[in-house]
Design a protein around this nucleic acid. Sequence first.
DNA 1: ACAGCCCGTTCACAGGCTGATCACCGGTCG
DNA 2: CGACCGGTGATCAGCCTGTGAACGGGCTGT
Lengths: 125, 125
Amino acid sequence: MQHPTHAVPEELIVGPLQIVPGEHLARADGRALMLSVRELRLLTELARRADHIVSREELFELVWGMRMRPRDRSVDVYVRKLRVKLDRALPGWRFIHTHFGFGYRLSAERHKGTTTRSQVDHTRA
Amino acid sequence: MQHPTHAVPEELIVGPLQIVPGEHLARADGRALMLSVRELRLLTELARRADHIVSREELFELVWGMRMRPRDRSVDVYVRKLRVKLDRALPGWRFIHTHFGFGYRLSAERHKGTTTRSQVDHTRA
DNA sequence: ACAGCCCGTTCACAGGCTGATCACCGGTCG
DNA sequence: CGACCGGTGATCAGCCTGTGAACGGGCTGT
């Protein structure tokens, strides 16, 4: 089922991230990200609630479309997959923040010290 | 009694601090703070009584939900944890003021000096 | 039809965070 | 000056998350 040609496409912007759910596409600084269906959908739902904490239960229902079973760790696993890909695409940025006991929050934040290679960052806001 | 759709969420503002209990979230100048459950709850109760002195006993009952045992120092410990995080997030501001023998009071007040490191400050409240 | 690859799911273990208490020190008041 | 009150740093067990890997199914190209 396609959208009508000229429908206004939803476009989510979070820092250097751009997400276009209607096109099943996400970009980092303009470069397309290679995300699986689940990954993109999780990122999308987080982006739609950027800067707000979203609980695992809510995320699960939004992305998987059903109630989360008690000890299901799927959300955690996909959050990690996303983090890895986002970090590889945009080192020096952090997007998915854990709120212990509550859930996750998507916000673009710079940070010092990169994962893979040592990246000099003298940003002293 | 719930409102149907978008009930107005409680939002507490204290100077540069914004607290949204319903979202388990507090922001400093718009930036999300990373607070634990207890910390956020303590900050919330203090904020709901901003500019008023709240006794330890009352704070304990509000946050812990039970009577405070005679020598319990929990409130003091959490006040400190909050002070540290608030100072790191907003150097130059003081929020939690001690009222010797009475309790604590939350009020946004500027002060000079402090950088990232918490500096000993002999200024009287 | 078959092999290979990608993806989604589930495990089990490791590590980090939180909340509760102590013990000790320094500050304040009478 | 002595007693009391609040500030601070550290410890500890338990729960919550992070993480690497294994498993099985479906899709694709040959």
